[in-house]
Write a protein that binds this DNA or RNA. Structure first.
Lengths: 276, 276
DNA sequence: GATAAAACAGAATAAATATTCCATTTATGG
DNA sequence: CCATAAATGGAATATTTATTCTGTTTTATC
């Protein structure tokens, strides 16, 4: 009947969960997975509900509780109900709690980034130019090949775009600058370039966009200001203003915009491929 | 028997409570006072417990619930439980609905990603393990060299971490898999590895973390579940649960956590270098 | 201070929920 | 491939918990 020691805190619980979930049989591992991902529901749910969530029988869930060191579900739930009160307060309060731990403590910093990200997202929703976005989707959906370029701070965005395109089987290439090869030769007329750059704008990105424009390729730009250096490329400009924390920013809004763009392109291509 | 309208939100509940508690008889007012002061316990307590807390009989508490507009205690508790469990929308079906109504426009998708990002960030604020975060910062601040590894979906996070470290003049190397070189030889005892991976976990990342652990290096892991495959490396586990939109996620929370980690390490190093 | 109405406590009952048990299936070692 | 053990599903049972009911007490009204 499992070890005699039942966890008495969330940390102990998580530790034990991680420790034994490796060696669990199938159904019990399902429970472990579900519980790990939905810890907060335990305090307010019944065995029946949780076992449905985990996709197992109630009796299996009971066995899981016992493996975790409790006498049964009730005892396990009791632990979660006792530690429940602290988690209750709303987002604003929790943020204050994080901040209260000292000025440049990790948690205070995290709070700043979280808040900055949230603000950026809200801002994005209200300021993005939908017409341009739709146009960009149309152009990209029709492109034989998509080139993604972005360095330094923009590189994570560029790489995530490439990942998304790859996952959707869309022909795209990430120009990552490895080997200092000249990427121009890969761009053919008709291809579309997604150029991502923020101030201080990186010259390579601007150059590549300019080149693409010269040879008659359409450019979609993701940047932090409408009046950036990409203007002369006739690019479809998607501008995102991200809230900074000190010298850094969290990229939440930019990445959200990028992934929405990519998925939209995927959806559009599906539509074009199947009926009309 | 009270108004026919039961409160459906915390606000409505509090409003109604304030409204009618004036005119309540003695015992029921005791209930009202206790509930006002212990709102957070309702979701996780039984009638018996609450009535003891309020100093009344269970039957009195039942009458209180009915006065508040509910059919009984269970219905009232249900409201609190639902309010608490932040209902993460099921975006898979939500997207299906969007498609069904023909509205999978880029703007609709963008709205979904923005919303998902917001939820993820708010959730991050309340679930991050501060102790582990601080420990990770300490370890990284003391590391002679930081190795960052993460592929596929985790690669943008890894690259952004590297960018941040580089900007702060912190010795860090991004293992990007270019050239299929074996990255192990670069890791020396004492170095610290930041391994980022999400389900389905990439074998290279796990292997590298395991190797680092074997040669006595500390591992900091950023993942989506506590009980991930990184367990046996004794890693400092930072887990982030991100809300998916269909098959994709916006990475908002993960990137925010990563950048907060990096900046914290920078701050800590400054402190170690100058003061103390 | 008498009377009616409302409020109450406590016990009895009903409903929901956890837990156990056992037959059946699935994995494991020889 | 067989024998044995482990794991599982589903239903039966036990326990907890909510809810209702009734006799009694308090409170308000005249």
């Amino acid at each position: 009947m499992s070890d005699q020691t039942a966890p008495v805190s969330l940390e102990e619980f998580n530790h034990r969960l991680a420790e034994i979930s490796e060696t669990m049989p199938k159904r019990l591992r399902q429970c472990a997975e579900f519980v790990a991902q939905n810890t907060d529901r335990i305090a307010v749910s019944t065995v029946a509900e949780l076992s449905i969530g985990a996709g197992v029988q109630p009796s299996a869930f009971m066995r899981f509780c016992q493996l975790m060191g409790f006498s049964g579900f009730s005892e396990m739930q009791k632990m979660f109900r006792e530690t429940y009160a602290q988690k209750w307060p709303d987002y604003a309060t929790r943020l204050d709690n994080l901040r209260a731990t000292g000025d440049d403590s990790p948690s205070a910093l995290l709070a700043e980034f979280v808040e900055a990200g949230r603000l950026s997202l809200e801002n994005l929703a209200s300021t993005v130019d939908l017409k341009t976005l739709e146009k960009a989707v149309d152009v990209l959906a029709a492109a034989p090949m998509i080139h993604v370029v972005g360095f330094r701070r923009a590189f994570p965005v560029a790489s995530y775009l490439s990942y998304a395109f790859e996952k959707m089987d869309i022909a795209a290439v990430l120009h990552d600058g490895v080997g200092n090869l000249n990427p121009r030769n890969a761009i053919r007329t008709g291809d579309v370039v997604i150029a991502i750059t923020f101030a201080p704008y990186s010259q390579e990105t601007i150059d590549l966009a300019a080149y693409a424009h010269d040879i008659g390729s359409q450019v979609v730009a993701i940047s932090d200001a409408l009046s950036g250096p990409m203007r002369k490329t006739d690019a479809l400009m998607l501008s995102v203003s991200e809230v900074d924390v000190g010298a850094f920013r969290a990229l939440s809004a930019t990445i959200s915009l990028a992934i929405a763009l990519a998925v939209s392109v995927g959806a559009k291509r599906d539509k074009l491929a199947h009926g009309k």
